[in-house]
Lab assay of single mutants.
Amino acid sequence: MGFKLLSKLLVYLTASIMAIASPLAFSVDSSGEYPTVSEIPVGEVRLYQIADGVWSHIATQSFDGAVYPSNGLIVRDGDELLLIDTAWGAKNTAALLAEIEKQIGLPVTRAVSTHFHDDRVGGVDVLRAAGVATYASPSTRRLAEVEGNEIPTHSLEGLSSSGDAVRFGPVELFYPGAAHSTDNLIVYVPSASVLYGGCAIYELSRTSAGNVADADLAEWPTSIERIQQHYPEAQFVIPGHGLPGGLDLLKHTTNVVKAHTNRSVVE
């Protein structure tokens, strides 16, 4: 069995187990497998329904001669939608809004960016022009300005110390501490036991640490421990890039980060 097929099978099995364990909360999309990078042309966006009122959005972007996937989250909030992270750029984010209108038909009224990198804030200006209120932590807003990236308009308070959590509509926002970046936030959907790890969490097929220019490698494993301790009931975990899975993604990420750190020390 090929690795790609095995990865998709694991996603399907995880979703099936969740649907059985929580039949009222989960209505997993039966329309197909989780979209992969090879299936999404740059400039297009796919939506994948995880649970009743919960979707991931998947886009792709060219970077350094390669094409990478990027995940975000959409959560229903009454007759409105909360968006977590842009679709990595203005063109993708405009396509995301169009796809949401086509498939869901509810307005996106608020959006949260989970850290300051372009795959999370690139497209904020498109959201703002569409009347979406954009939010991020003060740290993310400051770092985005320093980096020359787009800056969300509103500040999220109460997320300055490791372990801080605040309720934001249908989700809980959690600051686990520094990891992929010093400002990275985690998003949890309690009604569906869905954990969105953003770039602080890796997919299972990833074996290298990737972009760690703004990471705190020493603190990252401790931050992941905080996530595990705060959300032990999480059933569906979405990484910032690639295929979702279960809580095993947290341990896998820790292993990859520690291996990278150990290699760096040896070198």
Rank of each mutant, 00 (worst) to 15 (best):
residue 23 P to M: 06
residue 50 I to S: 04
residue 30 S to T: 06
residue 92 N to V: 04
residue 75 V to A: 06
residue 96 L to E: 01
residue 173 L to N: 02
residue 21 A to M: 08
residue 238 I to R: 01
residue 188 Y to E: 01
residue 186 I to M: 13
residue 208 S to F: 13
residue 76 R to M: 13
residue 149 N to Q: 13
residue 24 L to V: 08
residue 86 T to M: 02
residue 10 L to K: 14
residue 251 K to P: 13
residue 63 F to W: 05
residue 55 W to S: 01
residue 140 T to N: 03
residue 262 N to M: 13
residue 119 D to E: 02
residue 154 H to S: 13
residue 121 V to L: 04
residue 186 I to V: 08
residue 208 S to Y: 12
residue 236 F to Q: 07
residue 256 V to Q: 05
residue 49 Q to N: 15
residue 88 W to T: 00
residue 21 A to P: 04
residue 178 A to H: 05
residue 19 A to L: 11
residue 248 D to M: 09
residue 211 N to Y: 14
residue 258 K to Y: 04
residue 115 H to L: 01
residue 62 S to P: 05
residue 41 P to T: 05
residue 207 T to W: 13
residue 153 T to Y: 08
residue 219 E to S: 12
residue 143 L to P: 03
residue 125 D to Y: 08
residue 70 S to F: 02
residue 133 A to T: 12
residue 44 E to G: 10
residue 267 E to H: 15
residue 184 N to S: 03
residue 165 A to Q: 14
residue 263 R to S: 07
residue 101 E to R: 13
residue 223 S to N: 15
residue 89 G to C: 02
residue 184 N to D: 03
residue 143 L to N: 05
residue 159 L to H: 03
residue 184 N to R: 02
residue 79 D to K: 14
residue 90 A to S: 13
residue 93 T to A: 01
residue 140 T to S: 09
residue 261 T to I: 13
residue 167 R to Y: 05
residue 247 L to A: 06
residue 222 T to M: 09
residue 242 G to W: 02
residue 101 E to A: 14
residue 163 G to E: 13
residue 172 E to V: 14
residue 172 E to C: 03
residue 39 E to F: 06
residue 145 E to V: 11
residue 101 E to Q: 12
residue 53 G to V: 09
residue 107 P to Y: 15
residue 234 A to N: 02
residue 40 I to N: 10
residue 180 H to I: 00
residue 229 Q to S: 05
residue 253 T to H: 00
residue 119 D to I: 01
residue 106 L to Q: 10
residue 18 M to Q: 09
residue 229 Q to D: 15
residue 65 G to L: 07
residue 183 D to R: 00
residue 113 S to Y: 03
residue 98 A to V: 09
residue 237 V to Y: 15
residue 253 T to A: 02
residue 251 K to Q: 06
residue 68 Y to Q: 06
residue 85 D to W: 00
residue 77 D to T: 07
residue 191 S to R: 08
residue 179 A to G: 12
residue 232 P to K: 15
residue 132 V to K: 02
residue 167 R to P: 08
residue 94 A to T: 13
residue 174 F to S: 10
residue 100 I to R: 01
residue 2 G to Y: 05
residue 222 T to H: 13
residue 241 H to K: 00
residue 71 N to P: 01
residue 181 S to N: 00
residue 221 P to E: 10
residue 241 H to W: 00
residue 196 Y to R: 01
residue 255 N to E: 12
residue 172 E to L: 13
residue 134 T to H: 06
residue 254 T to A: 13
residue 266 V to L: 14
residue 15 A to N: 05
residue 66 A to H: 07
residue 135 Y to C: 02
residue 253 T to S: 13
residue 155 S to M: 10
residue 103 Q to F: 10
residue 116 F to R: 14
residue 117 H to A: 00
residue 71 N to L: 01
residue 230 H to M: 06
residue 119 D to Q: 00
residue 17 I to M: 04
residue 49 Q to A: 09
residue 1 M to L: 03
residue 183 D to G: 01
residue 223 S to G: 12
residue 106 L to P: 04
residue 111 A to E: 14
residue 39 E to L: 09
residue 254 T to S: 11
residue 37 V to K: 09
residue 168 F to S: 03
residue 8 K to H: 12
residue 11 V to M: 11
residue 24 L to S: 11
residue 192 A to T: 10
residue 253 T to N: 00
residue 219 E to R: 11
residue 70 S to I: 02
residue 201 I to C: 04
residue 102 K to E: 10
residue 208 S to C: 13
residue 28 V to M: 06
residue 30 S to M: 11
residue 232 P to G: 11
residue 77 D to F: 05
residue 169 G to T: 03
residue 65 G to P: 06
residue 154 H to A: 09
residue 74 I to E: 02
residue 18 M to S: 05
residue 49 Q to F: 11
residue 124 V to N: 09
residue 53 G to Y: 04
residue 181 S to V: 12
residue 118 D to A: 09
residue 10 L to M: 09
residue 95 A to T: 13
residue 180 H to A: 00
residue 171 V to N: 02
residue 244 P to N: 09
residue 117 H to F: 00
residue 175 Y to M: 15
residue 29 D to A: 08
residue 263 R to C: 09
residue 262 N to D: 09
residue 196 Y to N: 01
residue 105 G to Q: 12
residue 28 V to W: 07
residue 250 L to A: 04
residue 116 F to M: 15
residue 4 K to E: 14
residue 82 L to K: 00
residue 167 R to M: 05
residue 123 G to K: 02
residue 187 V to Q: 00
residue 123 G to Y: 02
residue 53 G to I: 09
residue 164 D to N: 14
residue 57 H to C: 04
residue 59 A to P: 02
residue 188 Y to K: 01
residue 8 K to D: 13
residue 95 A to W: 12
residue 109 T to K: 15
residue 129 A to H: 08
residue 224 I to R: 01
residue 163 G to W: 13
residue 68 Y to P: 04
residue 230 H to F: 15
residue 242 G to N: 02
residue 55 W to C: 00
residue 85 D to N: 13
residue 75 V to H: 03
residue 97 L to V: 04
residue 152 P to Y: 01
residue 40 I to W: 08
residue 31 S to V: 04
residue 69 P to C: 06
residue 96 L to V: 14
residue 239 P to Y: 02
residue 130 A to R: 09
residue 176 P to F: 01
residue 236 F to G: 11
residue 40 I to P: 14
residue 216 D to L: 09
residue 155 S to Q: 13
residue 124 V to S: 09
residue 65 G to I: 10
residue 33 E to D: 14
residue 243 L to S: 12
residue 223 S to W: 02
residue 42 V to L: 06
residue 166 V to C: 05
residue 234 A to M: 15
residue 50 I to K: 03
residue 120 R to M: 08
residue 161 S to M: 14
residue 215 A to L: 12
residue 224 I to L: 13
residue 172 E to H: 05
residue 227 I to F: 04
residue 149 N to S: 12
residue 103 Q to G: 13
residue 152 P to T: 15
residue 37 V to N: 07
residue 118 D to Q: 13
residue 86 T to D: 01
residue 6 L to Y: 15
residue 17 I to G: 04
residue 189 V to C: 01
residue 223 S to P: 03
residue 5 L to K: 05
residue 117 H to R: 00
residue 162 S to T: 12
residue 254 T to L: 08
residue 249 L to M: 07
residue 114 T to E: 00
residue 251 K to V: 13
residue 84 I to R: 00
residue 121 V to Y: 02
residue 95 A to Y: 14
residue 200 A to R: 03
residue 233 E to F: 12
residue 239 P to T: 13
residue 207 T to E: 12
residue 232 P to S: 09
residue 203 E to S: 14
residue 18 M to G: 04
residue 46 R to I: 07
residue 233 E to L: 09
residue 222 T to G: 10
residue 236 F to D: 14
residue 167 R to G: 07
residue 60 T to F: 06
residue 67 V to H: 05
residue 63 F to C: 06
residue 138 P to H: 04
residue 142 R to T: 13
residue 210 G to I: 12
residue 20 I to V: 09
residue 167 R to F: 14
residue 258 K to D: 08
residue 142 R to E: 07
residue 124 V to Y: 03
residue 212 V to T: 13
residue 79 D to N: 05
residue 206 R to C: 08
residue 40 I to G: 08
residue 15 A to K: 15
residue 243 L to A: 06
residue 168 F to C: 03
residue 9 L to I: 11
residue 43 G to F: 05
residue 168 F to R: 02
residue 263 R to Y: 15
residue 204 L to A: 12
residue 239 P to I: 01
residue 254 T to Q: 08
residue 72 G to V: 00
residue 4 K to A: 05
residue 192 A to F: 11
residue 250 L to R: 00
residue 61 Q to N: 08
residue 106 L to W: 15
residue 153 T to F: 15
residue 96 L to G: 03
residue 266 V to R: 10
residue 251 K to D: 05
residue 86 T to A: 15
residue 259 A to L: 07
residue 22 S to Y: 05
residue 109 T to R: 11
residue 244 P to E: 04
residue 190 P to H: 05
residue 230 H to K: 06
residue 74 I to K: 01
residue 132 V to S: 10
residue 114 T to M: 02
residue 135 Y to W: 06
residue 205 S to F: 14
residue 52 D to W: 07
residue 50 I to D: 02
residue 244 P to T: 12
residue 14 T to M: 05
residue 136 A to Q: 02
residue 58 I to C: 07
residue 223 S to Y: 02
residue 111 A to Q: 15
residue 149 N to H: 15
residue 169 G to L: 03
residue 145 E to W: 10
residue 228 Q to M: 10
residue 97 L to A: 03
residue 171 V to E: 02
residue 170 P to A: 12
residue 38 S to M: 09
residue 171 V to M: 15
residue 267 E to D: 15
residue 234 A to Y: 03
residue 180 H to N: 01
residue 17 I to Y: 05
residue 26 F to M: 09
residue 48 Y to T: 08
residue 34 Y to I: 11
residue 75 V to P: 01
residue 19 A to K: 05
residue 241 H to Q: 01
residue 174 F to M: 15
residue 22 S to A: 09
residue 115 H to C: 00
residue 24 L to M: 08
residue 107 P to S: 13
residue 230 H to W: 11
residue 238 I to K: 01
residue 263 R to W: 09
residue 127 L to A: 07
residue 192 A to I: 14
residue 29 D to S: 08
residue 89 G to S: 08
residue 149 N to A: 09
residue 156 L to A: 08
residue 38 S to K: 08
residue 64 D to V: 07
residue 57 H to P: 01
residue 192 A to G: 10
residue 16 S to H: 15
residue 64 D to N: 09
residue 78 G to M: 08
residue 188 Y to N: 12
residue 178 A to M: 12
residue 42 V to T: 12
residue 112 V to K: 02
residue 130 A to W: 08
residue 94 A to L: 12
residue 162 S to C: 13
residue 29 D to H: 10
residue 226 R to S: 06
residue 111 A to N: 15
residue 184 N to G: 13
residue 193 S to P: 02
residue 89 G to M: 03
residue 81 L to R: 02
residue 213 A to R: 13
residue 61 Q to V: 07
residue 245 G to C: 02
residue 120 R to C: 03
residue 68 Y to R: 08
residue 263 R to A: 10
residue 74 I to N: 01
residue 23 P to Q: 08
residue 251 K to A: 08
residue 31 S to H: 04
residue 12 Y to W: 11
residue 215 A to C: 05
residue 246 G to A: 09
residue 135 Y to E: 01
residue 224 I to G: 02
residue 29 D to M: 11
residue 252 H to W: 09
